[in-house]
Amino acid sequence: MENKLYVSMSPHIHGGDSISRKMWDVIIALIPALLVSLYFFGLGSLLVTSVSIASCVLFEYLIARFLLKQESTLRDGSAILTGLLLAFNLPSNLPLWIVVIGALVAIGMAKMSFGGLGNNIFNPALVGRVFLLISFPQQMTSWPLPKPFNLHYLDAATGATPLSVMKSSRFDRLPDMLDMFIGNTGGSLGEVAAAALILGGLFLLIRKVITWHIPVSILLTVYIFTGILRVANPEVYADPLSHLLTGGLMLGAIFMATDYVTSPMVKKGQVIYGIGIGIITVCIRVFGSYPEGVSFAILMMNGVTPLINAYCKPKRFGEVKKK
């Protein structure tokens, strides 16, 4: 028979889901926050975001092509996503050469050196950000103030972010809650717009890219922990809602902590992971020397993830209970 049949193991059909579908869904979910950022931070936001994405894609291509000598994996969109998330974690007035260094660390050190997508232990975008935060503390913590259609880039007016205000316990200087919700405050270019981020999160939930376990457990932990502190001493500690809406918490909880590769795989483990991130975040924010701790918290819990995976097993069907 000239027409030879194909033989393979069952199943013979596939659901059609793909990595690129998942990655592009996340990118789409980030677009509302990007638009808000472009509105408030203007030119700086545009420059930093495009340079970050372009350099991440370039570095991934170069490393895959010339160092690892494997086929390019650009099509899955994960490099674009890393670039976008890295940019979201940077201030919009950051010099572009620093952005390129961040991209190199994120892609080269945190992702490709482990063997590419799926093998990295830590979230690449966060490694890039934390590397920059430690190496360039001054540039990384001078936050531009929001100004609609801002055309200033490096010379944008800077000022205190709500988090540093909270750190010094001068709550009267905190911006309006509504401003914090829509993103009219200082901060990294993608983290300010809580409303847009929540919108993106809902999109991901509907598309079943993420489940509620990680974001909800992080946000709830932060809310309860800071709530207890607030009740204990309202003079020193900020109210829990401001904690939720400021800094990188929304971005971290919805987009960074839910990164597949670096988060636990079983629901029970995801809740433990979320609670861990929440507690560490609040500890750093309230008791530590940095005003913001989400990135550190996520990276620390990333490191614990293999352990969580090893101990949190799914409920087996028909498991015989030990007497």
Partner: peptide, 15 residues
């Protein structure tokens, strides 16, 4: 016939 799947003799011989 033409085999598709994991490149492992063990897997193929099970199939």
């Amino acid at each position: 016939s033409r085999y598709e799947g994991v490149s492992s003799c063990m897997a193929a011989s099970l199939l």
